[in-house]
Write a protein that binds this DNA or RNA. Sequence first.
DNA 1: AGGCTATTGATAATGATTGTCAAAACCACG
DNA 2: CGTGGTTTTGACAATCATTATCAATAGCCT
Lengths: 131, 131
Amino acid sequence: MKRNTWQREAVREALDGTDGFISAQALHSSLHATGSPIGLATVYRALSDLSEQGEADSLQSPDGESLYRACSTTGHHHHLICRNCGLTVEIGAEPVETWAQQVASEHGFTQAAHVVDVFGLCANCTRLAAV
Amino acid sequence: MKRNTWQREAVREALDGTDGFISAQALHSSLHATGSPIGLATVYRALSDLSEQGEADSLQSPDGESLYRACSTTGHHHHLICRNCGLTVEIGAEPVETWAQQVASEHGFTQAAHVVDVFGLCANCTRLAAV
DNA sequence: AGGCTATTGATAATGATTGTCAAAACCACG
DNA sequence: CGTGGTTTTGACAATCATTATCAATAGCCT
């Protein structure tokens, strides 16, 4: 059975209060900074639970870390991420969904899953970078 | 200056002779299996070099390993990968390219890059899995 | 309240990747 | 064909994120 603990709740809230993606390590530090004695292993467990239950999304940073994010929509969606400031926009991707399915079946593949993330510079960072 | 060594050549050839993506570790084992005394660190270095020079593509497997592949086309393309046997098909993704650009600009993002990979089970593995 | 069991957390273990550094290999050049 | 200066190699240690271990704790049901 699934039990409710303050630790899990703390992780959920910390995620909610964070803009963009954050690593398990960073989230743990952040919690410690606010005085929470939560353990690192617990943060990892809570995050992978949340991710499994669809309450959080996860992706891998270019250098191999797993990053997590609390997502407002529970359905399937993708992300548009500013590579400079981390700002993240949730985006639907209907055209991509159908395209992925089609390409997969064209080649005889089944159980197609896909990784689709768009990295760029948000309007703000674009302006700053132009200077 | 960049020097040519048989080790670098060996890594390049091993990559060429491999279907689909392969991890640095696996490539190293594979080389050892053929009698090559090449060192693990060297394989890592050679792979990251090849990847930087655009002679190889790299991506991260769902469990965080870095995988490499020699790609036939040097242009921009994506991959359809069998998550069981590693079989890989290079796919163009025109619809996705335009979609990504469009979504990015809709949100004021510039310099949009994207990660698009489709994982599934190839026809063969699908059949095996059905048993 | 009592008991059963899931969860926690400190720490060890794992596993991929990168750093270190002396020895060996490469590449002009004479 | 040697020689010298540098790059590259490779064995091994170090790092870093993540996962496993396991006794102690804390939830939840009755």
